[in-house]
Design a protein around this nucleic acid. Structure first.
Length: 420
RNA sequence: GUGGGUGUAGCUCAGCCGGUUAGAGCACCAGGUUGUGGCCCUGGUGGCCGCGGGUUCGAAUCCCGUCACUCACCCCA
């Protein structure tokens, strides 16, 4: 064998291999099933977009835009970027194709790879997969509740129940500025008690001080004003109604006024689903309402709400509770000699047309080695075709699990396999 | 971008106070007489001991550098 491989995946990128891919498929199928029941339809958007689509929506000042995007100039001299998240591109598509003219509300889901140039760590990759949803045109908290409960149903469907929902409202353009001022006022004389990161946050994004993990910052922020106490009338009613509906829909949650989201475009409702035991990257899904983004993209004034779930993190959690299973062949056809080898190919073709997984042995290998291969694949049945069987038009069958065996006519093989 | 940890066979690891041809388990392949897998036995394939330099008679082992992986910070799904 060769030594160190010449080519490897880039840092932060990974191959998803069997049997993991089977797990991924089942998660994707569950998403399609659950989301469809809520009226969400799939949308597929490019992974590459004009850079400004992301910088404008996510926020020029955010880390994502400032230092984490895969941005380059294409051969036409345009600045393009691999998408660091899905919402911006879906909003672009919504506006570009006038999707507001579809029956309202317009509900979409998508899945695919996202890219951020970050230092990888547990649960964090440079290419990572998200399944996301976006619902447009409904400003009512009913839609917030629908989207959040759908996320809950999805996580339940895939068997992920040891998670906690946290919700918050970060207000709107009416009430958030005043809250920000209150926060700045509160921290103004406590600046020297804050960690260096938070001193920086004080100027750039004071809300972030609220979820700093440094103990002296936690101390410094006791008694800090809470966003939930500074919401305007409309935002407060919206948030209250949402909680009422979540209770009605049997979604258990906690209100976390200190939860801050990283993207600039959120208004009012934000939420996050976390799981213990994922290391520090413990969010498996997150989202929120963004009522101004469509308009900012040149579309009609359209409210919207969405979320994204992190596939790698979900898969990681599921791998601990579900044992990964490989699919097994329905039949392994062992043949002895050329004539039998040909016949077995013909039989395999007939069975495969019925979508049965059939493997064929090497007719020039010993029966022993063919059986060993069948055993390794854990085939449900082995069928043996040699000179004797060719003469009588039969096959010897063997059940590898209990070593039982018998005979079956070639013509009746299909019934044998599909009948029971 | 910052800090810690780790790099020996496909996988999990031993060897590491320097000393003969670098090991184990698992996995893989082949045999253990005629057309029967698993279990067992035997044999085999497979390592520039991450890479480069230094110290030394001699380096997987000590030193320096570098790269990769990993965890954490930052940030986030």
């Amino acid at each position: 064998m060769s030594g160190a491989p010449q080519y490897k995946t880039l840092k932060g990128m990974q191959d998803i291999l069997p049997p993991d891919t089977f797990l991924w498929q089942s998660v994707e199928q569950a998403a399609h099933r659950i989301f469809s029941a809520f009226g969400f339809q799939e949308i597929r958007v490019p992974v590459l977009e004009t850079t400004s689509i992301f910088s404008r929506s996510i926020g020029e000042q955010t880390d994502i835009v400032e230092k984490e995007m895969y941005t380059f100039t294409d051969k036409g001299g345009r600045s393009v970027s691999l998408r660091p998240e899905g919402t911006a591109a879906v909003v672009r598509s919504f506006v570009e194709h006038n999707l507001h003219s579809l029956p309202s509300p317009q509900k979409f889901y998508y899945s695919g790879p996202m890219f951020r140039y970050e230092r990888p760590q547990s649960g964090r990759f440079r290419q990572f997969f998200q399944i996301g949803v976006e619902a447009f045109s409904d400003p009512h908290p009913r839609m917030d509740a629908e989207v959040i409960s759908m996320l809950g149903r999805f996580l339940m469907a895939i068997g992920l129940e040891q998670v906690s929902f946290q919700i918050n409202s970060i207000g709107c353009e009416q009430c958030r500025p005043a809250y920000k001022d209150a926060l700045l006022l509160f921290f103004a004389d406590k600046k020297e008690h804050l960690c260096p990161d938070c001193v920086r946050r004080f100027d750039r994004n004071p809300l972030r001080i609220l979820d700093c993990k440094v103990s002296r910052c936690i101390e410094a922020r006791t008694g800090a004003p809470r966003i939930t106490d500074h919401l305007c009338q409309d935002c407060r009613m919206h948030f209250g109604k949402l909680q009422e509906l979540l209770v009605l829909l049997d979604v258990s949650f906690t209100v976390n006024p200190e939860m801050v989201r990283g993207l600039d475009y959120y208004t009012r409702t934000t939420f996050e689903v976390t799981s213990k035991g994922l290391g520090s990257q413990n969010a498996v899904a997150a989202g929120g309402r963004y009522n101004r983004l469509v308009k900012e993209f040149g579309g009609p004034d359209t409210p919207a709400i969405g979320f994204a779930v992190g596939m790698e993190r979900i898969a990681e959690l599921l791998k601990r509770s579900v044992s990964l299973t490989w699919p097994v062949p329905a039949a392994f056809l062992a043949a002895l000699g050329d004539t039998a080898g040909n016949e077995v190919l013909r039989i395999a073709d007939v069975l495969r047309r019925q979508n049965l997984w059939v493997e064929v042995g090497d007719c020039h290998s010993s029966l022993k080695s063919q059986l060993r291969r069948a055993d390794r694949l854990a085939a449900r049945f082995v069928f043996i075709l040699g000179d004797e069987e060719l003469r009588s038009g039969t096959l010897k069958w063997k059940n590898l699990a209990d070593a039982s065996q018998g005979e079956v006519k070639i013509a009746e093989l299909q019934d044998f396999l599909t009948g029971g």
